[in-house]
Design a protein around this nucleic acid. Structure first.
Lengths: 205, 205
DNA sequence: GTTTATGTATAACGATTGTTATATTACGCG
DNA sequence: CGCGTAATATAACAATCGTTATACATAAAC
């Protein structure tokens, strides 16, 4: 009657490599060279995998990139932005975010710069999935800054006349400046100074 | 006795295309997509040239890129940085440079962003000629900022205790922030606001 | 233990990369 | 005019791009 095979017990994976470790290495390569300049052959060599294994596990290059970026956000991005939720004042929150950013992008333990900002900046097609995906994430970061500043106004930390969007843009821009300067060899100390200078533009006082 | 052919009268070129126009188009493509993501076939199509003509005129892709960047510096970079030499005070100089930058990278008449900052940011080999070449130019821009600030200290515009290098880095960083924000669609007006906010960090007063 | 499915290995796919050898055209000069 | 050279056009080069078909090995399920 029912010729359709029932799915049966889902089979456990027999993958022989560490998916997390592979994602880590892929993230590192994309971070350092960007999406298009990171070739599959380079990835395969670094991950010590054969092509079918990688395609089986991640689909294709675009999807691997997406997963690598998500991994980046979980492992690094979230830590950098954490003060937006934990610091007591908006000013301290942004100060700490900028410091975190300076440390992340110029520590020497990771590639310099930022995967989200620069990961697909040189793209043959700016409307292709990788650039679009990153742009969306950057928009989300802007929104996080924006919301924190709104909260600050509501709490009386900032005057109600404050141009929130403008301020959010300025400090997201400062983050970008820090990331960009790190590519030319600026040290964490120098980048913290950039953050401090930018904080002199904080409203009021 | 002398079998070596004397060079004779240098023959005028018989090139049939406008070298300047070709350079302009190449600049535009490199500006928009970066070095590696701009393929020769794409260049040839845009320039309406055949490969041998382009190679005859410019050598190879790397050399064409170099010439395109020089063209960019002459046509746009020089104008943006001109106030460093013409403005009466250092503060006004930097203010106008930042405004010029905001207008250039977000006017809509040109590709957004900056060829010198982003033209080879996603490179398979960061030590290859194109990234190295751009890095050198950015170093030169830093030096121009630095020298202008030194002059300002000598003229008494700034206290002698001013950390010149730090200030130069901060405003070069602000330029980078403006360029980066333009890639996500910020308007010239919004970018001028970023410049204004950054100028609130100007020492003294 | 046999069957069945899934991960791996080898090797190749067509497309495109930057570049150049060959052939043809056409202009400058004597 | 006619010689010689330089710019063009056609076409191909080896290398690499991202991806996949095929064959083999192996672990899970009955």
């Amino acid at each position: 009657m029912n010729d359709v095979k029932t799915p049966g017990t889902p089979r456990k994976t027999r993958r022989q490599f560490d998916r997390e470790a592979a994602l880590n290495t892929a993230m590192e390569l994309f971070w350092r060279h960007g999406y298009e300049a990171t070739s599959m052959s380079r990835l395969l060599k670094a991950l010590k995998l054969t092509a079918p294994s990688l395609y089986m596990a991640f689909g294709n290059k675009e999807h691997l990139f997406q997963e690598a970026v998500k991994h980046y956000n979980q492992k690094h991005g979230a830590k950098v932005l954490a003060p937006l939720n934990s610091a007591t004042t908006a000013r301290e929150a942004i100060e700490q975010v900028l410091y975190n950013s300076a440390d992340l992008v110029a520590s020497g333990k990771n590639p310099n710069g930022c995967l989200v900002s620069f990961g697909a900046i040189n793209s043959a097609d700016q409307k292709a999935p990788p650039p679009t995906f990153l742009k969306l994430i950057r928009k989300g970061v802007f929104n996080k800054f924006h919301e924190r500043l709104q909260t600050a106004v509501a709490a009386g930390e900032l005057p109600k006349s404050t141009d929130i969007a403008r301020l959010a843009r300025f400090y997201q821009g400062t983050m970008g400046a820090i990331q960009l300067l790190s590519l030319d060899g600026a040290t964490p100390t120098e980048l913290r100074a950039v953050a401090q200078d930018a904080l002199k533009a904080w409203p009021g006082k």
